[in-house]
Write a protein that binds this DNA or RNA. Sequence first.
DNA 1: CCGCGCATGTTGACATCGACTACTTCATAA
DNA 2: TTATGAAGTAGTCGATGTCAACATGCGCGG
Lengths: 213, 213
Amino acid sequence: MTEKRAKKGAVRPYHHGDLRMAVLREALAIVETEGLEACTLRDVARRIGVSHAAPYRHFPDKRALVTALAIDAMHALGAAIETAIDAAGHDLRKQFLAASVAYVRFAREHRGRYLVLYRDERDVIDLASPELIAAKERSFGTLLRFIARAQKAELFPEGDPMSLATPIWAMHHGLASLIASRAFPEADDTTLDRIVEEAHAKLLDGLSAKRKK
Amino acid sequence: MTEKRAKKGAVRPYHHGDLRMAVLREALAIVETEGLEACTLRDVARRIGVSHAAPYRHFPDKRALVTALAIDAMHALGAAIETAIDAAGHDLRKQFLAASVAYVRFAREHRGRYLVLYRDERDVIDLASPELIAAKERSFGTLLRFIARAQKAELFPEGDPMSLATPIWAMHHGLASLIASRAFPEADDTTLDRIVEEAHAKLLDGLSAKRKK
DNA sequence: CCGCGCATGTTGACATCGACTACTTCATAA
DNA sequence: TTATGAAGTAGTCGATGTCAACATGCGCGG
């Protein structure tokens, strides 16, 4: 009867069973609600109900935990975008817009995780982590594949995909970052979606372009 | 004989003279060389040669110091952009490109300060600081004034300036952020300038546009 | 010219954090 | 059955942000 959690007795067993996952889950919750600064190894351990040193059996140091959070966030962001694209039908323009909205919406709805993604001080996150690099490349691959399709369909011009990927990535990260920075404090979700759509149109057609439609 | 620094004796006087400026200067140096995480009140005090509590006479807490750094950084960034515009002659397109390059170059050459600018966790920086808000609005005003001129000259279409300002701001912050994140690790300064110019062209003419020139 | 008030610095303390070490518990495999 | 090592605990260390109590000396009113 050494269950992870005896229903009645609630006697915590000496071993947690899956402390690694518990730490990740709890840390994620803190990051989402109070931000990365408030996410403390000791507090995570406290909330789970283990000793303050227990997490060290699963993460060599705090950077490793933050890195794991970033990897998870990157996967989640990539998945959100792919889901949005898949749900947008066959029209490339609609797919592109859906991806735009999904990207920024992720940053809005998962502010804490998004901010972790772009924390690149070496003291805080292990930028050299192979898993993190792989996660980033995986998401970047989604963008590159879209660009290839758009070039084939003549939505985008031929040429080095990177010279398209860079402004696309920059614009969306910029938008997400501005919104996460509360640069539009008064805006509700609908307004923010409209802002994204406007910016998306400018990106596609250029600042100089006249209104369409 | 209570000079700030007697040349021979080197007996530090009890009062520093301008500790506030010294703290700001030293903190800035640390932020630029080792990043914000490494910037510790105690270390700043140590380097200046005052006690660890002395800075508290000039900054109520660490947030206030970080906020002051952000205000300074915002002014410096705004000044760099205005200087670049002024030096670019009368051609609006050239002015716009010069501002683009100057923005991103600032982020590259003052990585630490730039990252402080966009640190918007409440535990770290006082986003409500009137001076910070004023500094931001001042720089944003530069952008809005440029947009007004560009609209008058029919470089940009008429309409709500914000729907132009948002993508411009987002694109540049995104570019700067990507570069500061070392997303282009191998690139030298010339390459980075070219990346910015390409992205700038895409922003102006649209992703869909064919090559010009 | 003097003395005193108050801004400025100092010392010492406290709570908290990340990290390490030595010890304990217990699941598993020989 | 047992012993081996992974997982968890307790205690400690140095560093940090912050505060309170105390020291210093600049500059102003007399």
